[in-house]
Amino acid sequence: MSRPHDMGGQAGGRVEPAPDGIPGYDAPWHRTALGLTLAAGGLGGWTIDESRAARERLTDYPRFSYYEKWIAALAGLLVEKGFVTEEELAAGTADPAPLSPRAFALDKVAPALARGTPYSRPGPAPRFAVGEAVTTRRPAANAFVTGGHTRLPAYAEGKPGRVILSHGPHVFPDCNAHGLGEAPEPLYTILFRAADLWETPENPDDEVTLDLWESYLIPA
């Protein structure tokens, strides 16, 4: 199974720092890509989990730049959810229509951006206590959809860790990304020793944390 987005722990090039403050755009179309993605997200046609899954399954994921991924995934979601047809994409235009009642309206922008979308939900009581030792499941794979979306990185599969924060039930992306409902599960922050993740950690005292749902974890 190919998971090109799951790149934590791989070798990579130099990181190029940027000036402080609000970043500008590297190209004018990046601005449009950002604006379109957020404005179209306001249609409420898909969840953040569906959006991430749409980016991850792009054949061109490794080749595409950041905003190319956004735009390609947006095109896919718009067709999949019935907002736009393939014919319209191919034509590069569409018949004019009045503003849809579902569109992200100007007067909704400020309150919606300030409110956000909380992901905590009523749900089952946590099985693990803060301080408890756990092991992550192996392999890091979606248990419901073969090759589907999951948020357990491969570098952390089958690793021993310890619960340091308990966030309560949150929307479970492995289900929510595939139209299987929110299926809330307790979410934890798990602390791993770098020495348990990597054969040659930079420093034996270093640590990595991940935010993991309960079904990613088994008692140690």
Binding site: A39, E88, A94, D95, P96, S100
Partner: peptide
């Protein structure tokens, strides 16, 4: 497309 269709 999105602006003409009234989606954005």
């Amino acid at each position: 497309i999105l602006v003409r269709k009234g989606l954005v």
